[in-house]
């Protein structure tokens, strides 16, 4: 009798589980009476990139780019973090050629590599690359191990060292997770340009689809000489520079 009961119980509970599963899968099919439609997933037919011409870029330009980024994403107002603990999604870097003494200024941020080392090393797949080449941190999965920061050749990532509140609606940020330039993915998905590019509004920084032969960035890259930072690492960055 006991044996039978147990078997029956298993049978019944399986049936219940199955029906719950059916209902659950049915839900995603049930549509809403009203509501906005979802867009399609992004594909690898596009690859977003940026070309920064350091010859045309003044130091003030770069500072404008940095503050536009801070404004857009709400970083830089941390009160407890000190020194290197402060986030830096984009920063102004000044370099001098040791042979020619030539000085150039550039904006350095996540280079959105095709083969990102941060994605390779992340144990939980939190560091990820979208199909269209934008490298992001999925903060839902980030456990804050900081291995991606060890692996990034560009010092592009920051760790949130303190509690935050009043974040931007489109840019969740929180203590204990890693963050970096998103190429303003929330704007790009709406067909807009990244905040730093919009702030400058000159041809010193060109943003667009690297794969589209008609795009400004594609044609400019064909015409002018450009480089990738740490090209020796073969990461095929989405952010390119000319004039350094």
């Amino acid at each position: 009798m006991k044996e039978l009961n147990r078997r029956e119980f298993i049978k019944n509970s399986t049936a219940v589980t199955a029906s719950v599963a059916t209902v659950a899968s049915g839900i995603s099919l049930t549509t809403f009476a009203a509501g906005p439609k979802e867009t399609d997933p992004v594909t690898n037919e596009k690859r977003w990139g940026m070309l920064i011409d350091t010859n045309k870029l003044t130091e003030v330009d770069i500072e404008d780019m940095v503050s536009a980024c801070q404004e857009e994403h709400g970083w830089g107002e941390e009160t407890h973090s000190t020194g290197d603990q402060k986030p830096g999604w984009i920063k102004k870097v000044k370099v001098k050629d040791t042979a020619t003494q030539r000085i150039s200024n550039l904006a350095l941020m996540c280079q959105h590599c095709e083969e990102p080392p941060c994605v390779d090393v992340c144990p939980t797949n939190a560091s990820m690359k979208r199909e269209d080449g934008i490298v992001l941190v999925d903060k839902h999965r980030c456990i804050g191990c900081r291995y991606c920061m060890m692996a990034c050749p560009y010092d592009a990532r920051s760790f949130v060292h303190e509690d935050l509140s009043n974040q931007k609606e489109h840019m969740p940020r929180g203590k204990g997770t890693v963050e970096s330039c998103t190429l303003c993915v929330h704007k790009v998905d709406k067909g807009e340009q990244p905040a730093c590019v919009e702030a400058l509004n000159s041809d010193a920084v060109v943003f667009g689809d690297l794969l589209d032969p008609t795009s400004n960035i594609h044609q400019t890259l064909k015409r002018v000489q450009s480089t990738q930072i740490r090209a020796d690492l073969n990461l095929n960055t989405g952010v390119r520079y000319s004039g350094i």
Partner: peptide, 27 residues
Amino acid sequence: ILQRKMHPELLLHKRDKTLRQGVRGGY
């Protein structure tokens, strides 16, 4: 009732689609 019971699943499903695949809009 469905909303109350299943809001975690609904949000979880959408969150991965939005962040990882770039699906915007929708419920």
